[in-house]
């Protein structure tokens, strides 16, 4: 097992796409966060509010709801590039136990995306704080180390679980286009569509999908949800873990049954 993990780590670091995705994830998070954070501050200034306090991580979680797709692409490529190039056969020759290959990929993707989430979030928080401290933005910026650290850790965990979910979907679907479609629907399309229907049952269902589960876990009061999520943060984490586990199980079932 440790060999399989070491191999997956070598594979991840020896292709350029990994680094491109990490960079894209960081840039998108920073840009998204300063846009949202700056926007919120401007709104408050226009309303004539004084003495408001905006945390450095204001908008970072919402930004990550979009920026995560760069990191999802990284996770996806660890699986789908093996099928598009045919190298999956070499991988399975080296590690014929299917579950071991999948576990190794998940165990490499998870810490890499955790780190990517924390670092991207930290960069975004620093940029945001610098911006919000400026008088034009009301000087509302505050930096509470404890809260910021907590926010960043949760952000990392969310990214890691989104990555694991993507690895599972990738193994089940095999093609890049298919994987991205499924993950996008789960993480963005479906929950927003369900929300728009406005029906009680649809909203209940939507809030259990990974996007809102993640937002709940990260304590976001995002306007994406159109209202508070009806369960505590730890349940959000539980839903996220459940989705990732389900995706892995699906990937494992396909990997075992279908010819490589």
């Amino acid at each position: 097992m440790s060999g399989a993990i070491a191999a997956e780590w070598v594979k991840a670091r020896t292709v350029r796409s990994t680094w491109t995705c990490l960079l894209a994830g960081a840039v998108l998070t920073v840009l998204g966060a300063v846009t949202l954070g700056g926007g919120r501050a401007t709104e408050l200034v226009r309303e004539g509010v004084t003495g408001a306090r905006l945390p450095a991580t204001e908008g970072v979680v919402s930004a990550m709801a979009f920026a995560q797709f760069a990191l999802v692409a990284l996770a996806m490529l660890t699986v789908t590039s093996e099928y598009s190039s045919g190298s999956i056969r070499g991988t399975l020759q080296a590690v014929p136990v299917r579950g071991r290959v999948l576990a190794a990929k998940a165990l490499v993707v998870a810490p890499v995306l955790f780190a990517a989430g924390v670092v991207s979030g930290a960069l975004a928080a620093v940029a945001n704080h610098a911006l919000l401290a400026m008088p034009v933005f009301g000087g509302f910026g505050t930096l509470e180390p404890g809260r910021t650290a907590g926010d960043l850790l949760r952000l990392g965990v969310f990214c890691a679980l989104a990555g694991v979910l993507t690895v599972g979907v990738g193994a089940a679907v095999r093609s890049a286009a298919g994987t991205l479609s499924v993950v996008f629907m789960l993480m963005m399309g479906l929950p927003l569509l369900l929300m728009m229907t406005g029906s009680q049952a649809a909203v209940e269902l939507a809030t259990r999908l990974p996007l809102f589960a993640g937002l709940a876990f990260m304590g976001s009061e995002s306007n994406l949800t159109g209202g508070p999520i009806p369960y505590p943060a730890w349940q959000g984490l539980a839903w996220l873990v459940a989705w990732a586990a389900l995706a892995l199980a699906a990937g494992h079932a396909v990997l075992r049954r279908r010819d490589a």
Partner: peptide
């Protein structure tokens, strides 16, 4: 075994490809 010589990630270096295989089997 050599099945299909082209079945290698095109962006990975020759050394990286072999190193990953070596790591996987100690």
């Amino acid at each position: 075994a050599l099945l299909d010589a082209r079945a290698v990630h095109p962006g990975r270096s020759v050394r990286g490809h072999l190193l990953a295989l070596a790591r996987s089997n100690g």
